[in-house]
Nucleic acid binder design. Sequence first.
DNA 1: GAATACCCGACTTCTTCGGTCCGAGTTCAG
DNA 2: CTGAACTCGGACCGAAGAAGTCGGGTATTC
Lengths: 152, 152
Amino acid sequence: MLKLTKKADYGLMALKYLAEHPEMPALSAKDIADAYGIPAQLLAKILQQLTKSGLLRSHAGMNGGYALAREAREVSAFEVILAIDGPFFITSCTKGKTGCELTPSCTIREPLARVNDTIAGVLKSISIQDLAEHEHPPGHAREASALVELTL
Amino acid sequence: MLKLTKKADYGLMALKYLAEHPEMPALSAKDIADAYGIPAQLLAKILQQLTKSGLLRSHAGMNGGYALAREAREVSAFEVILAIDGPFFITSCTKGKTGCELTPSCTIREPLARVNDTIAGVLKSISIQDLAEHEHPPGHAREASALVELTL
DNA sequence: GAATACCCGACTTCTTCGGTCCGAGTTCAG
DNA sequence: CTGAACTCGGACCGAAGAAGTCGGGTATTC
């Protein structure tokens, strides 16, 4: 449970890849898919979603492809996941238009909503660039540490 | 995405309900199911899992039912979710026995594993009792705040 | 021994994720 | 201008997992 979809995974990988190759004006879906061994067609769809969400810029035609619309530093993992999987909520019914159909039940929700916010905060604090700079052989932990507060 | 299953929801609700009624020596699955309007049979199965995991104690026969095996304060939301949905991981492949099958790809995983730990930490910091004490009309936020650190 | 309640595995249904296919529009090179 | 290379975007499908149901078995109390 509590896992993000492969699409989101792929999306993050793709953005990371783009961040690692800033010299390229554009990379095609196939390039990225091949680099990671993921189905090209699927990646294509994901990249399309990211484009529609404004995280990527696409360029059709030969030597076309995708490029980051913003600096890698300015794109958070949260945005990516949001663009691909839509708004996420820990709980099944969290304030959907219908609220919780279960009787006066959902007293659970309120505390969990805080947890939800916390997670969102963590994901917002992580940028694509952070993912790309994975070159820290376990030992000297990088200090981009983020402090997150949770108030029940 | 990133949502927990209804089973986990139900489990948390049930434990919360038990925590709110410490005077009762035992509550049947049906009692709890009726209180929240959730399918009794399903809840029963969930409670059984929780019993097997040692979070609840069951007692058969008339006036039997379930009771918390530990103090509500001593049971974390993390344990409940773990007991019901099994170990969760943000990423699809996080260190499964096979590791990540994708080429040398999973560079994403390492940073996300940290996120995973952070979330786990947050959930561990929340007890069933915290859920039961939901009586804080928005205004005077309770200060059971937990500080969680995330180091990329 | 009957009523109540837990125990537990099998089964059905339903949703959604992961993945594929294909047609259409766009851009660039020759 | 024509065609190759590429993106765009919707339709489609199979598999997996979640949600919920059913039925038989066992323990406990009255």
